[in-house]
């Protein structure tokens, strides 16, 4: 049995589902952050897999097509940035509410 694109996509679906489950169930902001990381990784797998297995070829200048890899690269970079900002926000949040429970922060309510 060959490993095909579907394998990777299904793995990514599993990870995504797990991420959503985490985001839905955790009241802790850090938990939600972890869920987001899972979702991002799911996306990353898809990008790389599609790039490797479907998006084959070279550009006219001879460079291989590897946009998916580059996209994932950016995802990682942005995830790092996101984590840093999120952490700073959580610290402030914690400073304000003395807790990290997102449900306590209902001041967004209209």
């Amino acid at each position: 049995m060959m490993i095909g694109l579907a394998h990777f996509v299904i793995l990514s679906a599993i990870l995504a589902a797990a991420g959503i489950a985490v985001m839905l169930t955790r009241r802790n902001a850090l938990g939600i952050l972890i869920g987001v990381e899972l979702l991002l990784n799911a996306g990353g797998i898809n990008f790389v897999a599609f790039n490797r297995l479907a998006h084959v070829g070279t550009a006219p200048d001879g460079a291989p097509l590897m946009d998916g890899v580059v996209f994932t690269f950016f995802i990682i970079v942005l995830a790092a940035a996101e984590a840093a900002v999120a952490l700073a926000i959580f610290l402030n949040y914690y400073n304000t509410f003395r807790s990290i429970d997102v449900d306590r922060a209902s001041e967004l309510k209209g």
Binding site: V9, I10, A13, I14, A16, A17, A18, I20, A21, V22, L24, T25
Partner: peptide, 13 residues
Amino acid sequence: LGLVLATVLAVLL
């Protein structure tokens, strides 16, 4: 709820 939704999503995907 979370598990159900996640499962539905995974299945659908």
